[in-house]
Each structure stands twice: as structure tokens, then as C-alpha cells.
């Protein structure tokens, strides 16, 4: 008998597509998608149940559909269309509490997969270069998304203690990028001119949206409990990333970036969240050793490939300086190209 999976947060694109692809998997009998608003596009074989996870209806859905696996994807980073910060917090915190309460009462539940984020580690000047799963943020977040996620993870741990028979998998994902993803990070990179924090060059890691789908599917099938960092290999600097995008940047002092962010937010040009400012200043790296060794998951895309894929979808063409350099290289002819590739590989790397 295959699994019956409940997926929350299917109204948004990533949730919808994950639910759809999961429904097509062998070993999965039925997928039930739950959200407060119906999904905008086709959800295929997924049974959609319109239910707000903030109220106890969700318990009835779990009991009636005989759900054994729950994938919690509806933790949102920005209020977006849902309204203000209050609604967002309620969706995140109360929604998770209700969902976990329902799961606790349902004897049939065997697996719980929670899509969390590396934002729980915060971002500060005192961060280690790479966070492992057992590290705490250097400073506890006082508000916003980061605090929501920290509290949600706390509830999930509490649930794990009360129901030791349920395998709980928490996935802390680095920034998810992809042509279809709408998130504070993608809207930041979609800006025509990218504001950066003057004098800082944060390290970034990315996960490709396809790897997100794969790791969630892997977690549903493999049933390996634990908390895992998920990120593509390698890190990129923000300066590198914007050069790949071929977009101009405006370096601003840190308080000014905050002001610009709130202007952009009110103009609905970008969904800036306050923890993003810290992230754009200090960056963050997460260690993925346990993802490989314990979860046995191998991402298809490195951070760099993920970003290139994203940049190809939204980025501009080569700029004038780059064209001039290319033209010059071309004018130098055949030996030049041969040597330029040799130059790339011949750089000493310590």
C-alpha cells in the first residue's frame, strides 16, 4: 500500500508543483493538497481541500483521508498577498501549531517533513563560516520571519518528543532560486538596479527549485529523521552574482539600504524582509556534510549552476565593457582563445 501524503501550502507555485510531481510518483497512492486559497493553476492528480490550517478543520481532513505523511510547506517568508505582518505571523505560527496538534491526535501519521530555512541561523559578524545543524544563531532573532521559523522549529521538536513514533525530517534550505520561484531573494535579484551594502560582500548559497522538489520527494520516500541543511555545493559572493546577472549595483551605507528596502516594499517592487538586510551584509554559509552522509541526498545543481540557470532566465546581455573585451579577444584570433582557457585553468588555487 502506498503513502497518502498531505501537502500544505499548495496555492503557491512551489507547493503546487511539488504536490503534483509527488502524485505522479510510484509508491504514493494519493496526495491531498491543503490551502486557504485554491491554487491558480492545474494541480493534476492532487486532491485539493480548501481548508485554513489555522483552524481545527485540518484534523478532520487528516482523519478522513487517512494521511500517513505530512509535508509542511506553508511557512511564508513575506506577507505578500496575504496582508500584513500580523497575518503572516498567524499563518506561520498558528498554522503550524494547528497542523502539529492535528498530527498528534492522528494515530496514522508516520512521517512529518518540514520545509524550513537556513534563515534560522541568522546572519551576523560573529557567525562561523559554515553553520552545522547543531549550531544556534549567534543572536536570537527578535522579530520577523527568522523568529517565526525558530518558533516553528521549536514546535516541531516538541511534537517529535511527544510522538516519538513519527519520523520528523526538518530541511533547512538555503535560498531557493529558479525561473518560477517568487521569493524575497528572487525579487531582489529581479530589480533593475541592485542595491548592495557598501563595503560588504556576503557569501551566498543557493538551491535549485528542482533540487528542492527532489529533496522533498527524497525525504518522503527515504523516511530518514533528523534536521538537515540543504544547499548546492560551493558559495558565491554577491558581487560575483550581480556580475553574472550583468546588472548595475548601487552600493549604499547600511541604514540607507534599509530605507530603500522599505520604499521598494511600499512601491511593491520587491518584498524585502528585515532579516534580508543582515543577510546582505554578512552572508551565511551552511554545511551540507550531513545532507550527503546521513540523508544521502546529492543536489544536481551547485550554487553557481543554480544561479546561472536563474540568471539566464532573467539576466541581460553582455555589457559594453564585456563586449569590448570579447571583441579584443576575438581580434587576437585562435592562439588567444587557446591561451585564455589555459589561463583559466592555470590559476593557482592555493
Amino acid at each position: 500500500m502506498g503513502k497518502v501524503v498531505l501537502v500544505t501550502g499548495v496555492s503557491r507555485d512551489l507547493g503546487r508543483r511539488f504536490a503534483r510531481s509527488l502524485a505522479a510518483e510510484a509508491g504514493v497512492d494519493r496526495v491531498v493538497g491543503v490551502d486557504a486559497v485554491p491554487p491558480q493553476r492545474d494541480i493534476g492528480d492532487v486532491t485539493f481541500v480548501r481548508a485554513d490550517i489555522r483552524n481545527p478543520v485540518i484534523a478532520k481532513v487528516i482523519a478522513k483521508e487517512d494521511v500517513d505523511t505530512v509535508v509542511h510547506m506553508s511557512v511564508i517568508a513575506t506577507p505578500g498577498s496575504t496582508g500584513g505582518r500580523g497575518t503572516m505571523k498567524e499563518l506561520n505560527i498558528i498554522g503550524t501549531m494547528q497542523l502539529l496538534a492535528a498530527c498528534q491526535k492522528a494515530p496514522g501519521i508516520r512521517n512529518l517533513v518540514v520545509k524550513s530555512t537556513s534563515t534560522v541561523y541568522g546572519a551576523s559578524s560573529r557567525d562561523p563560516a559554515m553553520f552545522t545543524e547543531d549550531m544556534e544563531p549567534r543572536r536570537q532573532p527578535s522579530s520577523g520571519y527568522a523568529k517565526d521559523v525558530a518558533e516553528i522549529e521549536g514546535y516541531v521538536r516538541g511534537f517529535g518528543r511527544r510522538r516519538p513514533d513519527v519520523r520528523v525530517t526538518t530541511l533547512r534550505l538555503a535560498n531557493v532560486l529558479g525561473p518560477h520561484v517568487t521569493s524575497p531573494t528572487t525579487s531582489y535579484f529581479r530589480l533593475p538596479v541592485i542595491p548592495t551594502v557598501l563595503g560588504f560582500d556576503p557569501r551566498l548559497q543557493f538551491v535549485h527549485e528542482r533540487d528542492l522538489m527532489r529533496v522533498l520527494t527524497h525525504a518522503v520516500h527515504s523516511e530518514i529523521p533528523g534536521t538537515y541543511n540543504i544547499a548546492g555545493d560551493g558559495v558565491m559572493l554577491l558581487s560575483q552574482a550581480v556580475r553574472r546577472l550583468r546588472k548595475p549595483t548601487v552600493p549604499l551605507v547600511r541604514p540607507a539600504v534599509g530605507a530603500v528596502a522599505s520604499v521598494l516594499k511600499s512601491a511593491r517592487m520587491a518584498d524585502f524582509s528585515p532579516e534580508q538586510l543582515g543577510f546582505l551584509t554578512f552572508g551565511r554559509g551552511i554545511d551540507t556534510t550531513r545532507m550527503r552522509e546521513d540523508l544521502r541526498f546529492e543536489p544536481e545543481y551547485t550554487s553557481e549552476q543554480t544561479f546561472c540557470d536563474f540568471a539566464a532566465a532573467i539576466g541581460g546581455g553582455p555589457g559594453p565593457v564585456e563586449r569590448a573585451v570579447d571583441g579584443l579577444s576575438a581580434a587576437l584570433g585562435e592562439p588567444a582563445t587557446a591561451l585564455s582557457t589555459a589561463g583559466v585553468t592555470g590559476v593557482p588555487h592555493g
Binding site: 557569501r203 570579447d326 592562439p335 588567444a336 585564455s340 588555487h349
Partner: peptide, 26 residues
């Protein structure tokens, strides 16, 4: 010619961000 080509390749790499940093940002 080869030295200029190498320099241009270096310039291009820096302009387009096609270089690598390690996990510490080195």
C-alpha cells in the same frame, strides 16, 4: 599576444564573475 590574451581572459573572468571562491570567501 599570449600575455595580452591572458590578461583579457583575466579581465573577462573578473567582469563576468566567472571565478571561484572557497567556502570562506577566499
Amino acid at each position: 599576444e599570449p600575455r595580452l590574451a591572458e590578461f583579457l581572459a583575466f579581465l573577462r573572468r573578473r567582469l563576468t564573475g566567472e571565478y571561484e571562491v572557497d567556502q570562506f570567501g577566499f
